[in-house]
Amino acid sequence: MELIIIGVLVLLVIFGVAQYNRLIRLNITVDEAFAQIEVQLKRRADLIPNLVETVKGYAKHEQGTFDAVVAARAKSTSASTVADVAAADGALTNALRGLLAVAEAYPDLKASSNFLSLQEELSTTENKVSFARQFYNDNVRSLNTAVKTVPTNFFAGFAKVTARDFYEVENAADRNVPNVKF
């Protein structure tokens, strides 16, 4: 009888350790996924100065648009929480739409190989940002499900793991990828 009790206790400890480790792994995966969003947003932010300078060469009188893009880029590089990053990401997307709308009015710019290269790079980066957002939200869903369901919810406090926020764009207009077709 004593051996059975010891065996059950050992199984309970093993089960508890497995649940604890699962929560820690899920939490680390969410952190990693958020870091990937930041990497892709940084990549996009690094493209913007070149894009702005290229467009500036053709559209010198559009200073307000350029200033909006630069300000949005500055906000996007300084945001740190999920909500702040998502808000800055949305603002930058809107500013880029304005910049690309300006570019639409300049046929010489649309034919520029430098601009076309930057446009392609931006389009590729937008796809990577979209994938990184989805990957993050998938991992947040898995973590939140584990934190809120039995039996792992009993171990969440002990593991100091809590539900995380999803990456959500601010408004419906931000949900669209910028139109970079020229």
Rank of each mutant, 00 (worst) to 15 (best):
G64W: 08
G64Q: 12
G64P: 10
T65H: 01
F66L: 14
A68L: 03
A71R: 12
A72Y: 00
A72N: 03
A72P: 01
A72T: 11
R73F: 00
R73P: 01
A74W: 04
A74E: 11
S76K: 05
T77N: 04
A79C: 05
A79V: 10
S80T: 14
A83E: 14
D84R: 05
D84C: 01
V85Y: 03
V85M: 06
A86E: 03
A88E: 08
D89N: 14
D89W: 03
G90M: 04
A91S: 11
N94V: 01
N94T: 07
N94E: 03
N94R: 11
A95D: 00
A95Y: 00
A95M: 05
L96G: 03
L96V: 07
R97C: 00
R97V: 01
G98R: 13
G98F: 08
L99K: 07
L99A: 07
L99S: 08
L100W: 02
A101Y: 04
A101E: 05
V102D: 09
A103W: 02
A103H: 00
E104W: 03
E104R: 14
E104A: 12
E104S: 13
Y106F: 12
Y106K: 12
Y106W: 10
Y106S: 05
P107V: 06
D108T: 04
D108L: 09
L109S: 01
L109T: 02
L109A: 03
A111M: 11
A111W: 05
S113D: 15
S113V: 13
S113K: 05
N114R: 08
N114G: 07
F115Q: 08
F115C: 05
L116P: 10
S117N: 15
Q119H: 09
E121N: 13
E121C: 01
L122H: 04
L122W: 07
S123L: 10
T125E: 09
T125G: 02
T125C: 12
T125L: 02
E126D: 06
E126H: 00
E126Q: 07
E126M: 02
N127D: 10
V129Q: 00
V129Y: 01
V129T: 00
V129G: 04
V129F: 01
V129W: 00
S130I: 00
F131S: 15
F131C: 08
A132Y: 06
A132I: 10
R133Q: 13
R133V: 09
R133I: 14
Q134S: 09
Q134D: 08
Q134A: 03
Q134M: 07
F135S: 07
Y136F: 12
Y136M: 04
Y136S: 06
Y136I: 06
N137A: 12
N137S: 10
N137G: 09
D138K: 06
D138Y: 07
D138C: 12
D138A: 10
D138M: 04
N139V: 11
N144C: 13
N144A: 12
N144G: 13
A146L: 13
V147F: 14
V147Y: 13
K148H: 11
K148S: 15
T149K: 15
T149V: 07
V150G: 00
